[in-house]
């Protein structure tokens, strides 16, 4: 089986994959990257609601880029003055 490398970018943090994983084909590698991104995002995003960008770059055995996948998370809240109950300070706040 060919070896694929999955470099992870979490915002400005770059976590290269020195080891790689043996997988049957490129399609499996792409599925793995997609699933990994969703798992990492599910774990990391609930934090503080800040915008996050996760990218996985798939490299082949010669370390040439063959594919990339990303999850770009942004939480938006309505601008001040909008009628939606954004960031309201209700009287049952402490």
């Amino acid at each position: 089986m060919p070896r694929f490398y999955f470099d992870l970018y979490d915002g400005a943090n770059f976590a290269p994959d020195p080891q790689g994983v043996d997988l049957p084909d490129i399609e499996t590698a792409k599925d793995e990257a997609t699933r990994t991104l969703s798992e990492i995002a599910a774990q990391e995003i609930p934090g503080d609601g800040a915008s996050r960008l996760f990218r996985i770059v798939i490299l082949d055995e010669t370390r040439s880029i063959i594919s990339e996948a990303r999850i770009d998370f942004r939480a938006t809240r309505p601008a001040p003055g909008n009628s939606a109950p954004a960031d309201s300070k209700d009287n049952h706040d402490e």
Partner: peptide, 21 residues
Amino acid sequence: TQTDLADALGMSIVHANRTLQ
């Protein structure tokens, strides 16, 4: 194998590999 670990832990093989690293 890493595939066994991934299937035991409910995560992708790449995620298992990265977690071990």
